[in-house]
Simulated scan of single mutants.
Amino acid sequence: MRKVGLLGGTFDPPHIGHLLVAEEVFQALGLDEVWFVPSHDPPHKEASNTNVEHRVEMTQLAIKSNPHFSVSAIEMERSGISYTYDTVNELIQQFEDTVFYFIIGGDQVEYLPKWHRIDELLELVTFVGVKRRGHELKTPYPIEKVDIPMFEVSSTLVRDRFKFGGSTKYLLPEGVESYIKEHNLYE
């Protein structure tokens, strides 16, 4: 059985923090791969203003130097709200020889009781929680915990830096930074 980590998010834009989390979980759990899953329309926050094609392309640029990372466009191929239950259920049907681990930050660990069909989802996937400042990994649900080096960056911070002319050096992979500038995103 293959072991695959799933890292979902809007990736608007993908940044070094996303890559760090994916690599640390990959190593800690001995995964075969980590798939980045850009969400189409996330249920827990406002939809992204950046179109889907840009977010997928930026994510592909962000991961291109890592052979055990890939992008799954499964949620892009569906319209409507991107519920994790639907995504995982579809992946399990497509990849019967695979065990999936869904990687989430501490903020989402606390939010798990509100997730769509959480009890059924827990039968399909193992959740992996990573710490985020200001959040504990406390939940009534079973999760694997992975300690990662703290790196405080967010997509909101990156977008604000572009909007107000600040530096994004060392916050983004160079290819993503170039792509954003080339397409005048976040101005």
Results as ranks from 00 to 15, higher is better:
117 R>I: 00
55 R>Q: 05
151 F>H: 07
109 V>L: 07
34 V>I: 04
46 E>D: 11
169 K>N: 07
141 Y>R: 06
162 F>W: 08
185 L>G: 15
28 A>W: 02
106 G>V: 08
66 N>V: 10
174 E>S: 15
77 E>H: 04
159 R>E: 06
62 A>C: 06
5 G>S: 09
154 S>G: 10
159 R>S: 09
22 A>E: 12
117 R>A: 03
180 I>F: 13
33 E>P: 04
170 Y>A: 13
22 A>W: 13
117 R>L: 03
142 P>K: 11
30 G>V: 05
33 E>D: 07
35 W>H: 06
40 H>L: 04
181 K>W: 10
41 D>E: 06
91 L>M: 13
64 K>R: 13
80 G>D: 00
174 E>F: 14
68 H>G: 02
171 L>H: 09
116 H>T: 02
143 I>R: 07
84 T>I: 11
102 F>M: 07
77 E>S: 02
105 G>H: 05
162 F>E: 05
43 P>H: 12
133 R>K: 15
164 F>A: 00
159 R>W: 09
143 I>V: 15
21 V>F: 07
13 P>M: 11
162 F>M: 06
153 V>T: 14
100 F>D: 02
125 V>A: 11
22 A>P: 14
102 F>Q: 03
7 L>P: 05
141 Y>H: 12
39 S>R: 01
71 V>E: 04
44 H>M: 10
7 L>G: 12
185 L>Y: 12
134 G>N: 02
15 H>M: 12
59 T>Q: 02
55 R>W: 03
158 V>H: 09
152 E>T: 10
25 V>C: 14
43 P>N: 11
91 L>Y: 09
127 F>Q: 01
44 H>T: 10
63 I>L: 14
145 K>H: 03
63 I>H: 11
48 S>N: 11
118 I>K: 00
155 S>F: 10
106 G>I: 07
132 R>W: 12
38 P>I: 05
82 S>V: 02
8 G>D: 01
49 N>F: 11
128 V>A: 09
134 G>M: 00
123 E>T: 13
141 Y>Q: 04
4 V>E: 01
51 N>D: 13
124 L>P: 03
69 F>Q: 04
139 T>Y: 10
89 N>E: 10
130 V>G: 14
65 S>D: 08
179 Y>W: 06
65 S>V: 00
120 E>Q: 12
132 R>K: 14
50 T>Q: 09
95 F>W: 01
40 H>W: 06
109 V>H: 06
29 L>D: 07
92 I>R: 06
135 H>W: 15
97 D>G: 03
122 L>F: 02
23 E>H: 14
14 P>V: 15
168 T>W: 02
104 I>V: 09
11 F>A: 08
15 H>F: 12
110 E>T: 13
17 G>S: 10
182 E>P: 08
139 T>K: 06
185 L>F: 14
62 A>T: 06
108 Q>T: 04
99 V>W: 00
44 H>S: 11
152 E>L: 11
187 E>W: 08
14 P>G: 13
105 G>A: 06
100 F>P: 02
139 T>W: 07
56 V>R: 00
5 G>Q: 05
102 F>D: 00
111 Y>P: 00
160 D>R: 08
112 L>V: 12
139 T>C: 07
45 K>M: 09
60 Q>K: 13
138 K>M: 08
